[in-house]
Design a protein around this nucleic acid. Structure first.
Lengths: 193, 193
DNA sequence: CTCATGTGAGACGTCAGCGTCTCAGACGAG
DNA sequence: CTCGTCTGAGACGCTGACGTCTCACATGAG
């Protein structure tokens, strides 16, 4: 999933792309990356904080939608897990390195509030799978959430460093997340690819 | 492993602790966190960049030592993996959130150079285990390295958010890394705790 | 006591980035 | 052609942080 599919505004998409490479980029650089002047960038986003906040909000929105589309409460936990990991994993290139952005106090709180519902769905999925015997019981749901988040960053960073291709990173991300949670004797198909 | 064991200088240790909570902290804040005046902080570290660089160098040094102490080339790959994960995992609380620090171009290059040798040892370990049949062959060594790095951040961040205790995070970190790489039929002891 | 060393407090200049503003030019609609 | 709208270029002031400097004070050795 490319930045342009997550951010309706092409300016925002370009800014997000550049911020992924240079987290401390100035408004000057972001404007240049978007192919517009600094003045125009300020016309669209009244401040730097507003720009960052809007990007993060859009990313959170995409995350919530990805979780919803995967329907974590439907089907067997194992199938639901695969769908979730596949769906959320697509966001890695866009959302991943945005997670490194230093945020203001209330902005971070707003983001957490926005994603709280989706995270709760995932916690329920983990518990459902554990009660049903398909998931490892020793995995704390909170740890699964943390793993999901930061392995997206890992995937994005590996691509940034040129160590993995986007598709390889996505594949490994999915594989690692499912093997981390699925009980080994429950693997639907042992292969990773 | 506490910050004081990684950073000989208690000032550096305090700064690292504070930077983990506030990545964009000013020199004023860092001095206050270390219990010294801003002037004294500048006497010890000629610039902010120098301070950050020194912290990262020390962290990289600790990482290299942790890998060396785990002796990744000795014993069976599975045993070596457990040692590595255990050893490196201890660094998570200290090193984890330091990875989020925006670095200058050449500083990052210097860090990569410093850790290159240790990373190469780990790549060899992964390949050795794969050739020996104990490790999953579908896991790219690069992906394992990325996973190792970013799950340390995940552990540190989970603790920061109060979602996990330090010991729980460490346990999950070890468990996830080993299950991600070990072939399921090769698990030495199935339990995680 | 005297002196050397180290520290805290704070003033000061510098500078980069932010955010505002103005003006000139491009461009399309009518 | 004319007007309204949008944009780029650039000047401007402001702020916060950096880094330097000075001075007073504490502490400890001799």
């Amino acid at each position: 999933m490319s930045p342009d599919e997550v951010f309706a505004d092409p300016t925002a998409a370009a800014a997000a792309r550049h911020l992924a490479l240079a987290p401390a980029a100035s408004m000057q650089e972001l404007a240049q990356a978007a192919g517009i002047s600094r003045a125009t960038l300020f016309r669209r986003f009244p401040s730097r904080a507003a720009l960052i906040a809007e990007l993060c909000q859009a990313a959170a929105q995409a995350y919530v939608r990805a979780v919803d589309e995967a329907a974590p409460e439907e089907g067997t936990p194992a199938q639901a897990l695969v769908r979730v990991v596949e769906s959320v994993g697509r966001l890695a290139p866009v959302v991943g390195l945005l997670g490194l952005q230093p945020l203001g106090e209330h902005v971070e709180a707003a983001l957490l509030a926005r994603t709280a519902e989706a995270e709760e769905k995932l916690r329920r999925l983990v518990r459902r799978g554990q009660e049903g015997g398909q998931f490892r019981v020793e995995v704390d749901p909170e740890w699964f959430l943390a793993t999901l988040t930061w392995l997206m960053v890992a995937a994005a960073d590996s691509v940034r460093l040129g160590r993995l291709t986007t598709s390889a990173a996505h594949r490994h991300l999915s594989a690692t997340l499912t093997t981390a949670l699925l009980r080994p004797d429950m693997a639907p198909s042992q292969g990773t690819r």
